[in-house]
């Protein structure tokens, strides 16, 4: 098993490097002048020329690539063209808030999606099944942007139940700020024992998390339903039923465990995707996450930031995949590390 993990980590490093190289080349081939953006809109020709030298943009592309990759490897991710801050600092600032959102959304999706899928498979072709299938298709097809705004309009402005945007009540956070430890406010407020801030942060998290949950929820429901149906038609299930094993025990103890394999992969992939795929949700709810940072970087031709974000997401993908493989083996002893 240790050899397996080491080999996988090595392959992962190669994959991440490949992603970084491709992203860098693509981002630099796009016709945009980062030097002109760096100095601002009304800059003089000399200012632009000087910035080009400072940023190393006067070098041939292959040399820029090697310089950037070498720096990347030792942890110098360069400076963002747009924010003028070190990219690694930008990412550190945005990643925790994104992680909170993605984690909350995924938890919701898993907590609701798995039982929905199981019920759907168990009550195949009867109304609970129809209902959950319609729900799943609806959730997958609703544009997140629209869903976000509808939630905001109904639950926020209309019913006044939930705050419209942001991470925490402005005045509350000003009067007595919570020290930053992890960068994720829901965690930091708990660490500081500040339950008023925690409550406010949690309330602010509900709507964005529901929006983020919509797509994976639909996906997980569908996935669990189809794998469960396959498993439920197996002989051992029939045998179990013949022995009079409780149906609940059959569904959740025996069938679900065998049906979880493909679902785990779907969950892991949607986690990786959500890290940057949530930028529309982040924009609507003024949630300062990585998705919004990435979207701005792409629009602004900010190549150090684009490469930085891509590397982080690639790392998340490969690590998640590794975790999934290990988890699958834990769930299903037939899976071997080869």
């Amino acid at each position: 098993m240790r050899a397996f993990i080491i080999r996988r980590l090595f392959l992962s490093a190669v994959a991440v490097l490949g992603v970084a190289v491709i992203t860098f080349v693509v981002a630099r081939l796009v016709p945009a002048d980062p030097a002109a953006r760096w100095v601002g809109p009304h800059a003089t020709a000399e200012q632009i020329a000087r910035a080009r030298v400072e940023l190393g943009l006067d070098q041939p592309l292959w040399r820029q690539l090697i310089t950037h990759m070498a720096a990347l490897a030792v942890g110098d991710w360069g400076r963002s063209i747009i924010t003028h801050q070190p990219v690694i600092r930008d990412i550190a600032a945005h990643l925790p808030t994104s992680l909170v959102l993605v984690a909350a959304g995924t938890l919701l999706a898993v907590a609701l999606g798995i039982p929905l899928g199981v019920v759907s498979a168990a009550a195949r072709n009867r109304w609970p099944d129809h209902l959950s299938r319609a729900l799943a298709i609806g959730l997958v097809s609703i544009p997140t942007f629209w869903l976000a705004m509808i939630l905001q309009l109904w639950l926020g402005q209309g019913a006044g139940l939930l705050p419209i945007a942001g991470q925490v009540d402005t005045v509350l956070s000003l009067l007595s700020p919570v020290p930053r430890v992890t960068g994720a406010l829901v965690v930091d407020s708990l660490l500081a024992g500040r339950f008023d801030v925690f409550r406010s942060a949690l309330a602010h998290l509900v709507m964005p998390a529901l929006t983020v949950a919509a797509y994976p929820l639909g996906l997980i429901t569908r996935m669990v339903r189809s794998s469960m149906m396959e498993v439920l038609s197996e002989d051992y299930v029939r045998t179990a039923r013949a022995y009079g094993v409780a149906e609940r025990r059959i569904l959740y103890r025996h069938a679900l465990r065998n049906a979880m394999g493909p679902t785990l992969t779907v969950i892991a992939l949607s986690l990786g995707y959500a890290l940057t795929g949530t930028f529309l949700v982040e924009a609507v709810f003024a949630w300062p996450g990585l998705g919004r940072y990435a979207a701005n970087a792409v629009i602004g031709g900010d190549f150090p930031a684009i490469v930085g974000v891509t590397v982080v997401v690639a790392l998340a993908y490969v690590l998640l995949n590794l975790v999934v493989d290990l988890a699958q083996a834990a769930l299903d002893p037939r899976v071997r590390y080869d």
């Binding site: 006044g160 939930l162 705050p163 009540d169 005045v171 409550r199 406010s200 309330a203």
Partner: peptide
């Protein structure tokens, strides 16, 4: 969650209407 949300939401609205004051949660 809704209960938490209700509290937070009311606090926000109070912040606006009462002219920057933090609503019911904090006296200062």
């Amino acid at each position: 969650l809704a209960a938490c949300g209700g509290g937070g939401g009311a606090g926000d609205a109070g912040g606006g209407n009462a002219g920057g004051s933090g609503g019911s949660s904090s006296g200062q």
